[in-house]
Design a protein around this nucleic acid. Structure first.
Lengths: 203, 203, 203, 203
DNA sequence: AATGAATGAGTATTCATTCAT
DNA sequence: AATGAATGAATACTCATTCAT
């Protein structure tokens, strides 16, 4: 008995999926209503039966697909593990999520700068993830597994690194960069946790 | 004696500046030729007197403004300094450069994904900077100032962090993030060089 | 139940008619989409709802209106008649057809030289007509009504003459030329069939 | 001491040549002032120094190149020859002239329909040639070499045939047509002079 | 719910022409 | 005589959106 405006209507989902896929390939402007309609084998009018306008379609599509809660589960699972293992698993989980949401990542990256609405959704998502992660690190300092580091900056370093690595290697296909595999994640975590300087060199 | 096609013609520069500025605010598609012309108080035809087409205008504008050589000078200047001071100065220099080229950074970020040409220019620039920085770090390992770290990944971490910090804080204006000032850079460099773990904790 | 892309849609026909008429008056370039739209009291967008682009509109319009089969019927009808009568009727029929398709003739003449697509359509049409006519003449040689003439050249002379006469007199309005009426056709057929030379003069 | 507006200025000629050549390849609209200027290694402004506007340039170019007097000389030369030989030489001469003026022929054909000015120049040229040829044929009737044919129509047949043959074969490159060589001309003249009907068949 | 015809404002691009130098 | 920067109007084409059916 659910009508076309119900958020869970199958048709609605289909339109939003098509919109996201096309926008990830061709940008927001390149994802025209006509293309979205064709991809779903309907006519343009039908899209407007489900969404007020193009902006409405995209706002809802992006919002519904933004990933947040996965990190919460993940951080809960690893709570007891040693920090190396924990960070390794968080990094792996983070990469898995952004790989799966690859199309969304493209849109966030390219639209956030100019589209304030999408920028806000992106910023909120980032912010939530950051806070959870920071809480995790703070706890690890409390339990003595980490030194008295600036966790706000540490979180930025952590997510920033894996995000950029993914962006450059897998979105922009820069091929003279290392593959983002288990080794890469291990090396990265090591570089975070251990001193870059010679042991004993730093004060 | 210089004609309109000379790259150093003042008018050309004016058009390219306007193009970059508008595109940084509204994206490539949003930076219409008409807007660019109006900003420069000429008619659209005039733009086409100087550039073959919109793509040509942007290719030249972006290419001419891409920042590369600054890092070379910088790395040369800090060659003799201790690693902490060196990394601090490189980070400061890097931030200064991307701040000055802020509009260009917006364009790179938002266009690289869909515009292959701009993607290539961006990738080349990144690649050059990475190589120079990696050579610097390798040398520091040789001289014993750094441990035997994976410099390829270290370089990614280093630039990735400052780039993302700038992107989030100064482009997307996420205000619950720390200001990117001297303290922030110092903290970041410390987090790179020193172990995140308690002294003596790691093997 | 027929949609806009059905070739028999009334609107489509209207657009194609307007396109042909305007092009016959002002040439292909002069027949702008805006003019065609105005002539049909619609906006430019509507034209593009029916045709992919200007070339598509004209290709379909020209192709659909190209006259070929009329000659086949005609030649069949006159099969039994004496050759003088037959050629007279074919000439009359040919003139009737190109008069009715007058606008199309203008387009063929003026566009064939530079527009390869239209050139091909025109050439094909000419070629088909020529072949049918040549078969007719060959048959007349067989039955002894014509001498052993070069029918390929005879066909060129026949159609070429009436076409040029129409072109000069009725398209270019050269008024010091004879009217293209029954007498003209009779005279022409006589000049083909009978010797230009004095009877008995030629070997 | 001749200035730039003197009709015989070398520059003027160069511009008109370029205009005709480009228009024969791309049509009047396709022959832009910029292209003409480039072909002559000058800038657009220079063209306007020599001609009032584009129309002026083309009017003068076409008028100056129209071929008329050649036929007069030719007809004079063949006055004494037998009619077969005479018509053969006129046809050869006519083909030579339109081949040499091929670019002009393209322009006449494609522009005469829509461009009244060029249409007039073309019509005048045709008319003069026709009158001379008709006088020649009338004389041949007087001397008894030709029967009492309608020379106005005969002239149309004669020139019309060779013109169409040239247009189809050499301008439109219809390749299933006979080559326009000596044999073709001979065959054509024979078909004019001799009866298409079996000897003795016609009354 | 769905169609698809129609709109109107916009976009890149072209081009004949002018004019100060 | 020649330049080339500048104009402004035009051109093909696109697209989000509306609406009668």
């Amino acid at each position: 008995m659910r009508n076309c405006h119900s958020p869970s209507s199958e048709r609605r989902q289909q339109f939003m999926d098509a919109a996201i896929e096309l926008a990830s390939q061709r940008g927001y402007e390149g994802a025209t209503i006509k293309l979205i309609a064709e991809k779903c084998n309907v006519t343009v009018g039908t899209i407007y039966h489900y969404f007020k306008n193009k902006e409405d379609l995209f706002r809802q599509a992006v919002q519904e697909r933004a990933f947040t809660s996965i990190l919460a589960t993940l951080l809960n699972d690893i709570d007891e593990l040693p920090i190396e293992k924990g960070l390794f698993l968080v990094a792996q989980g983070f990469l898995k999520v952004i790989r799966e949401a690859g199309m969304l990542v493209s849109i966030f990256i390219s639209e956030s700068v100019h589209n304030h609405e999408i920028g806000t959704i992106y910023a909120d998502m980032i912010s939530q993830n950051r806070q959870m992660m920071q809480a995790y690190l703070d706890k690890k300092i409390h339990t003595g597994q980490l030194g008295a580091i600036d966790t706000a900056v540490a979180v930025q370093i952590f997510f920033g690194h894996f995000f950029m690595a993914y962006f450059h290697k897998e979105l922009l296909k820069m091929d003279n960069l290392p593959d983002i595999d288990e080794t890469f994640v291990l090396n990265s975590v090591n570089l975070f946790l251990r001193s870059w300087q010679q042991e004993g060199t730093h004060v």
